[in-house]
Amino acid sequence: MLRAYVIVFLLFLYAPILLLPVFAFNSGTVIAFPLDGFTLHWFAELAVTKALHEAVVNSLIIAAVTAVISTALGVAAARAGVRYRFPGKAAALGLIMVPLVLPEIIVAVSLLVVVVQIMGWDLSMGTIIAAHVLICTPFATAILNASFQNLDPSLEEAAVDLGESRSSTFRLITLPLIMPGIIAALLISFTISLDEFIIAFFLSGSEPTLPVYIWSMLRFPRLIPVVMALGTILVVLSVLLLTLAEISRRRGLRRAGVKDKGGFL
């Protein structure tokens, strides 16, 4: 009974994703059943849509920069949280995690107010990156927390005891052992940024990101089969990235000799 329920629930979870390719390869222009026939036309159309390519490039740049910065911030926060005791630690780390539960619309409008109304700056890819780093850092911190917690502190002491300095210990011992966590954090941040819409919608200037571009396409029924084709590609890419992140995380656990206790969050 329970198993049957869980299977139905998984179907519910996967229903939208499974429908994407169905319509992406359907030659009918209306997104509804019954299906017409098989076509690759919508994918071909993607290849010649120049505005889309620009949006993809914008999104990739934003996602890559966001991933690097938020992972670096995550390393600092997780390291401080796991390794050191200091007054105000719980409050400081709690504050860093707050964007995780803050509605994105609030992040978006508050930054919009500051950037446009108060500072008088133009919106740009930079403003999106700044906001994306804010919401990705808690995810990176959570992943890296697990990595640092799995790291026996006496490993670092042993390296110092054997003559290494603080910095060479970090390079020779700490970094290799948390590397799987770093890779997982990079990939997760990258994926979140690539897919984020609300903040990008509020903060993008003349350079739309991919989700913002998709949003604009959704208003034109003619373009929707193309969006389906694009979505199919994105889903495949995301699953690929996530699988890599998961493999990396598991390798890290195995290397640290720790039993697997579950997923990212």
Partner: peptide, 20 residues
């Protein structure tokens, strides 16, 4: 004198064998 400059070496309770 920091630990890395002392003429002592240590066997840790957890052994601290570098797993990688």
């Amino acid at each position: 004198v920091p630990a890395n400059q002392r003429p002592t070496n240590m066997v840790f309770q957890s052994y601290a064998i570098f797993p990688h």
